[in-house]
Design a protein around this nucleic acid. Structure first.
Lengths: 328, 328
DNA sequence: TATATTTGCTAAAAGGTTTTATCTTGCAGC
DNA sequence: GCTGCAAGATAAAACCTTTTAGCAAATATA
């Protein structure tokens, strides 16, 4: 295993000082009055031997690591997977790379990970937080570490956030069921979590239903249950309440709803869900979608974080991105 | 912004040497004959002030970073997203964390990323490679960097690999269509890539069809095309060849096949696809699946890589994991 | 009593950068 | 012949660890 070249190897081999090589490599040749001739000689040699600086040493010295920590609940959820994919690409274009992690309901582990990332001098964090994370995120902020939250803000954390227009999205989705689908009894299925995006969606549903004086029909599912339990509860909810339409607050619930409908041959056929899914047009009944604008969310998240890292942000930004309704 | 404590701050504040603190912190107190009293004093103090060692400095000194690079084609593909999720968890249990990246057909970028990860002294790589990556991976191996490939080996790269039993899986899938579904004309849809997993699946299909002397009906799709083009080609393939059954070599193709079937109301109703998808039971016609054993693949990948990093592996391991047939 | 050995601890180098402060030389101005 | 300044380069400190080699005192051995 060939030992890697260091900057001092370069300096020795060329008979110049380490400082000089460093200046040239960092584009400070002019500023530091290194002669063009020498600069060229160094650059040529560096290219010839394919020298690459040790990033660890660089980071240690500068305190910057050119990397961003991305924490989501579950990378195998298509919404997060897609957004991770976009964020990764955008960050790369800014010269940052992503260290990601999924937290999977394990708060203890999430905290450890944030600490771990912090120990690696990560330049900033992008987090779709769970509720117990307020303290540790506030600690980051206290240490002036840039943090952007997305998907859901935390009530007691005051930092940049990028979220979807959940209330309006759910409102439009419900109105779609009312006006286009002529629904009479619309159920709303959500989780028992108190995450803000879920509250927003419930609010939008309620607003629309209240508008027309329809009954509020809400089911809160505990996602910790087995799939069978969830499916069976959804069946009961749909049939007990004689629903002809359902708004699902998230993808995962819609899919379990479809399973219930198929398995128990339920009548309900006017469905809409938050978050698009490639197969929503293929299932029976088809599922319309309130689609979050993933590309735009990713763009804003990265823009804000990078600006903040570069110190170009003075006030806290709270961005809200509209959703698209995909009618089916 | 409070400056972070360093080990020398600890040493100064306690009036002991840096060396001593380091030894104690690294559990070498006994071995280095530090008195229990002092060890306790240091540990108590470290806990009290919540000191965390700087991982960069640690890595710089030891040459180990306790991190693993995971490179896949596209993290938003559910197969990769799920496997990434599992790998991440298993690696964490071994004290490693994952730096992931999706390469998105951009070979140039993939090469840069591998170099970048290498520059950060990543302890090992897990890669689902594309074909142009042979050289750069061989370079890693030449520098004795541990590498495990999964999903698809590369013909000209000799390292550890974990793959599914593609030939057998496709064979069983085809036999299922023949024997259980009583299929008469079975088409096989794959991509135009020459990746080894695709070759294996084709081989399994051919073996089964040849067995019974049926016609070979194969369509190779260029995935660079737009969705409409793909859907339209699939429609032509299915209707021109009067297929009554189709085996899709991958998830993405099956979904486009379903779109073609729905959009053009095709007759074909005996479908099976590589890779499971939550909605395959909900669509019409339902899609059976040749499901790769994601948990086991992740386990083997991590086991091999960690062993290799720890120098516990002398020979090259080539692991093949069976698939499960999910009949619908 | 003199010599080994053990105990308990530490100085300093090493790892590879960046950056501050400084050094030498040549030249212009007077 | 002196001063001041610019050009062109560099030595050394700093970032924070780990680890080698070794020191001083106490204890054991002969």
């Amino acid at each position: 295993m060939k030992k890697r070249l260091s900057i001092s190897d370069i300096a020795n081999n060329l008979g110049v000082s380490v400082t000089t090589v460093s200046f040239i490599l960092n584009g400070k040749a002019k500023e530091k009055r290194i002669s063009d001739a020498l600069a060229k000689r160094v650059l040529d040699y560096v290219k010839k031997v394919d020298y690459k600086p040790n990033q660890l040493a660089k980071s240690l010295r500068t305190g910057k690591s050119k990397s961003i920590g991305l924490l989501v609940e579950d990378i195998s959820n298509p919404f997060f997977a897609n957004i991770a994919d976009r964020i990764e690409k955008l960050a790369y274009d800014h010269g940052y790379h992503i260290i990601y992690c999924s937290m999977k309901n394990d708060e203890q582990r999430a905290k450890e990970l944030i600490q771990l990332f912090y120990d690696r001098q990560i330049d900033g964090f992008i987090i779709a937080p769970t509720e117990g994370l307020s303290d540790v995120i506030n600690n980051l902020l206290k240490s002036s570490v840039p943090v952007v939250l997305f998907d859901r803000p935390l009530a007691d954390v005051d930092t940049h956030t990028v979220i979807s227009e959940n209330v309006e999205g759910a409102y439009q989705g419900t109105m779609f069921l009312l006006e286009q689908k002529n629904a009479k009894r619309i159920g709303f299925v959500t989780t028992n979590s108190t995450q803000s995006q879920m509250k927003g969606r419930l609010e939008g549903y309620m607003k629309a239903v209240d508008n027309v004086g329809m009954d509020l029909l809400v089911k809160k599912i505990n996602p910790a249950q087995t799939e069978e339990e969830v499916v069976s509860q959804l069946k009961d909810f749909i049939s007990d309440n004689k629903l002809d339409a359902v708004l699902f607050a998230t993808n995962y619930l819609a899919i379990n709803g479809l399973k219930a409908i198929k398995q128990y041959q339920l009548e309900v056929d006017k469905l809409i869900s938050f978050d698009e899914n490639t197969t929503f047009g293929l299932v029976n009944p088809p599922v319309s979608a309130i689609s979050q604008n993933i590309q735009e969310i990713a763009q804003e998240v990265v823009r804000i974080l990078v600006n903040q890292i570069h110190g170009k942000l003075d006030k806290i930004e709270k961005v809200v991105i509209p959703c698209n309704l995909i009618a089916r």
